[in-house]
Design a protein around this nucleic acid. Structure first.
Lengths: 344, 344
DNA sequence: TTGTATGCGTTATCAA
DNA sequence: TTGATAACGCATACAA
């Protein structure tokens, strides 16, 4: 148990060298010859010396630390994204500070503040659902921190945005159902003011239009994100005079609601009802029948977001972030829930 | 866009004060009167000053930062634990640095090293499945970092360990099945060398013994953690001459394997087969029939682990960690999978 | 109540 | 090749 932390001074004293020389040796400075360098490193190991990043970072003005702010760490999508970010940061020798906003604007501001104080070099953020203004985000940029948004973005902020191509995936998912022979497809969406949800709706509509499918307006429902509400809506539509024969939902939980409704009403999936969800949750492969879903490749999204920072840092060091949108393609996980067997 | 960071020197200059005075004012030092303090804070806000934690921490010798090392961030159990830790840390004004070992001993060592360099005050760790030695953990303690283990612990390390009471929960879960009228219960376990799994087995056996139930030795199986293996084992047992009429598994994924096996063999759950899982995964409430499972209260576990650090810090500051085990009680989530209807 | 001086551990610059 | 020095930004002991 050592009382005082071992520093380069201790190493220097032991070897009768100067601290600056030791520092250079440890950092593989070219002016130090191999023998001396090895001797210093040897002694450092012997004394169980650990480089003090705090001091070095203060001196260097960079913390080699990246901050991440997400609504909730323990939401599958975000924990996957973070896992991807961590992996990339680790490769690049950077540390990761994690904050959660818990969907609160106030906590989000506090998190930004913390990260500025911590001198992070970059902030990766997916904004809370409450967030409508962006001074706090701009403030990070003012403090010379690279800001990269992912998934849930504020449109008007200059900088890199990393997004799923959800328009495209919704289009493809819908098309997959049309190809499987479903004739009248309903849509269960999320809050319209969130970009990713409006995109999903737009993708859905494009596929419907292309197929020249006529859809009653009551088939298109926004803001039914909670499973219970999705279920209620499915109940209503499936018991109506003109029931849909398929659903595209923007979450797997909604899809689950539809499944329960169908079961209750004695409607068989996929024979009489097709179903396509979003997010490819763990349970989606496990329920019966297997739920077709859009895999958002969330870990890849994290990797892409972190990589965007490192690439910018390496190539355009100094210049400000480009105003760029990076799309991470989703992949369709086709399962039994749209496997109708026969077409038409 | 400010070129240079605003420091207390800038504030001091603007107000014709000394930097130390500004520092005191910002930190609510008692020797500063209200008027002066407010004036300084006002100016700080005006200049968009942000306290530099790096510098302060270097000066203070404490980073107000806690490091967490888990096998994988995006495993439900761990992301829940982390969410709890984050919440507590946030309350206490501490930051969180997250590392994942990805079940690799090497990465775990690297993570410890990173956290030592980062000057974290405390490391919360759940060791990788590869970890057999503990020098790296002791080294953290040598560097004056509080070490708190949770879930997967190295027995011989002095300090606080935060654990689920899995012995007790396995016992209760088994008992719940006995009470529901199941007569011959089989056990599907995990690697025996991991404490939490041997505890689950022991709890199971205690309940069996108490009920004076005679169990064929082939009912007790360790090391069948993967779902596929659990399924194979269930196939074997359920097709044997003396099939069990219930299973306790140590994971919900195993239980899912049992469900598939039962379905294939035309055995009805819960009528002819009871089933109790572990971890209360998201899907457990969603599968049909609902899977009874042990809820490990993982977020609470994270809160408890972090709280243990803060309490120790506040009350016994300076002294080394006590050798203490904190148990976080699990809760049984009883669902249809053991709802047999009639007893006997 | 206010200010001065010093050090936390590192690294870059410059000089020897 | 080696070393002295200053600086990063802050907070504390001490002096005024």
């Amino acid at each position: 148990m050592q009382k005082k932390r071992i520093t380069i001074y201790d190493i220097a004293k032991e070897l009768s060298l100067s601290p600056s020389y030791v520092s250079k040796a440890l950092n593989d400075h070219p002016s130090i010859n191999d023998a001396a360098r090895e001797k210093v490193k040897q002694k450092a190991k012997e004394l169980n010396y650990k480089h003090n990043s705090l001091a070095a970072n203060l001196r260097n003005g960079s913390s080699k630390t990246i901050g991440v702010i997400v609504p909730a760490i323990n939401q599958r999508f975000f924990s996957d994204v973070i896992a991807g970010i961590e992996e990339k940061c680790n490769q690049e020798g950077h540390s990761l500070i994690i904050c959660q906003s818990l969907e609160s604007f106030e906590l989000e501001c506090k998190a930004i503040d913390t990260l500025i104080r911590q001198n992070v070099d970059c902030i990766l953020i997916s904004v809370s659902s409450q967030t409508k203004t962006m001074e706090h985000l701009l403030n990070a940029q003012v403090h010379d921190i690279s800001l990269i948004q992912f998934d849930r973005c504020m449109e008007d902020i200059q900088g890199i945005k990393v997004l799923n191509n959800t328009f495209d995936s919704a289009y493809k998912a819908t098309k997959a159902m049309i190809d499987a022979g479903y004739k009248s497809i309903a849509f269960l969406g999320g809050p319209a003011h969130i970009e990713t949800f409006s995109q999903r709706k737009a993708g859905f509509l494009k596929a419907i239009e292309e197929a020249e499918m006529l859809i009653p307006y009551v088939y298109i429902n926004e803001n039914v994100l909670p499973m219970e509400e999705a279920k209620k809506m499915a109940d209503k539509l499936l018991s109506s005079k003109l029931p849909p024969d398929a659903f595209l939902t923007v979450s797997d939980h909604q899809a689950l609601g539809v499944m329960e409704s169908a079961e209750k009403l004695g409607i068989s999936i996929p024979k009489d009802l097709g179903l396509f969800g979003f997010a490819n949750e763990d349970f989606s492969a496990l329920v019966k029948p297997g739920l077709s879903s859009v895999d958002q490749m969330s870990k890849q999204l994290g990797i892409s977001a972190a990589s965007a920072y490192f690439e910018h840092k390496k190539s355009h060091s100094g210049t400000s972030m480009p105003d760029e949108v990076i799309y991470v393609d989703c992949e369709l996980r086709i399962r039994d829930s749209i496997n109708r067997g026969s077409k038409g």
